[in-house]
Design a protein around this nucleic acid. Structure first.
Length: 139
DNA sequence: GCCAACGTTGGC
DNA sequence: GCCAACGTTGGC
């Protein structure tokens, strides 16, 4: 099962808003970047991902699960843009900050560090385990 | 709020 | 198909 990372500015759409949606989840709309879209098209129901707060927060705050495969982004009529639905699984016991990730040599190749502007990113199984351990949270 | 890095657009 | 100009993102 593949692992991913979703970035959002908490002022726009944060972890609390995601949790409030419950198991129904919410579409991860508004992505207008081909690489991010392609990542979403590669997702399968049941895949898990990290939820990262960008700009304000700068930390991974929880784990989400993909609950619907890629479909048309309903916020646009442009059929180039797809999105998946995700739901909150559990919060991190200890949020993992960007500074922590940058300081850990095992995580130096994370897309979060290397391609900081990509809003939907793949995460390797190894990175997944390390970050969950840092967050004191069950993967 | 600033600005560097990146992606996209559009003229040629 | 190149590349300059522009807009957006996101760390600081």
């Amino acid at each position: 099962m593949a692992k991913w990372l979703f970035k959002s500015e908490p002022d726009v759409w944060g972890w609390d808003a995601q949790v409030a949606k419950g198991d129904a989840g919410e579409q991860w709309d508004g992505v207008r970047n081909y690489q991010a879209r392609n990542n979403m098209r590669a997702m399968k129901v049941g895949d898990r991902g990290f939820f990262y707060h960008s700009r304000t927060g700068l930390e991974i705050v929880g784990i989400i699960e993909v609950c619907a495969a890629a479909h048309q982004d309903s916020t646009t009529d442009d059929d180039r843009w797809d999105c998946v639905d995700i739901k909150a699984v559990r919060p991190f016991v200890k949020p993992v900050s960007l500074a922590q990730i940058k300081a850990d040599p095992r995580l130096e190749n994370m897309a979060l560090v290397k391609s900081s502007r990509l809003s939907v990113q793949p995460v390797t199984d190894e990175e997944w385990e390390i970050v969950c351990a840092l967050g004191a949270t069950k993967p």
